[in-house]
Write a protein that binds this DNA or RNA. Structure first.
Length: 207
DNA sequence: CGTACGATTCCC
DNA sequence: GGAATCGTACGG
């Protein structure tokens, strides 16, 4: 199978909300030392520069948000609730500060490795009750998919999807129906329907 | 320097 | 329903 990695030009070819929809059906890939994991992106959210829910809203440049002001196709990974991380694709022109949050994947490669990574949660000893994670739960949520894919802020934050071992493949199909609705877990900006997901796809998070 | 909190997940 | 857990943001 050809790598078919999306070029950097793909990420700047659309406005952020359009990109969030164009990413649906594309495949996120991580070629790690432990093995390859990948999954079809089935759920995303857009975060815009005039959007109160966006970390970089209103040109707020800090050490954390700096990657969001990089070129489209930059990776933005941040720590949330002290124990989980979220993976974003930086969008729009350099200096704008917008991104697309990836919220769920349909696993395609390395499900065994995904399950192992999910079991190895910090402070958690795997038990029989956690020994088997359903395939549809492996990447069902932004924190879950980051852990299953082995994505880490230390190594991937600020990298480019056009180079390195974390990248996105072009979609091999066009999603038939895309649903838009309110974003999940935010306290402001709830009036904007910037969450997008593939209709009837069982790997989409419940929110 | 102190502290409140978050684009979440899991357990009671 | 509530805890876990810590870097970040912001005020003093």
């Amino acid at each position: 199978m050809p790598e078919d990695r999306l070029p950097l030009s793909f990420y700047s070819a659309y406005d952020t909300r359009t990109l969030a929809q164009k990413l649906l059906g594309c495949e996120l890939v991580h070629e790690s030392e432990d093995g390859v994991t990948s999954g079809i992106i089935v759920e995303t959210e857009a975060y815009l520069q005039d959007d109160p829910a966006c970390h970089a809203a209103f040109n707020r440049r800090t050490a954390r948000t700096e990657p969001m002001f990089g070129v489209a196709g930059t990776v933005y990974v941040y720590l949330i609730y002290g124990m989980y991380q979220c993976f974003n694709v930086v969008s729009n022109a350099q200096g704008v500060g917008e991104a697309v949050l990836v919220r769920a994947l349909q696993p395609t490669t390395g499900m065994g490795l995904m399950e192992l990574r999910r079991q190895l949660r910090p402070g958690k000893i795997p038990t029989l009750s956690t020994a088997n994670i359903a395939m549809k739960e492996l990447c069902r949520g932004p924190g879950k998919l980051v852990r299953a894919m082995g994505i880490e802020r230390e190594t991937h934050n600020g990298t480019l999807l056009s180079e390195g071992n974390l990248y996105i493949r072009a979609a091999s199909f066009t999603p038939s129906d895309i649903i838009a609705g309110p974003r999940i877990g935010i306290n402001v900006g709830g009036e904007f329907p910037y969450r997008y997901y593939i209709k009837d796809n069982i790997f989409v998070s419940k929110g």
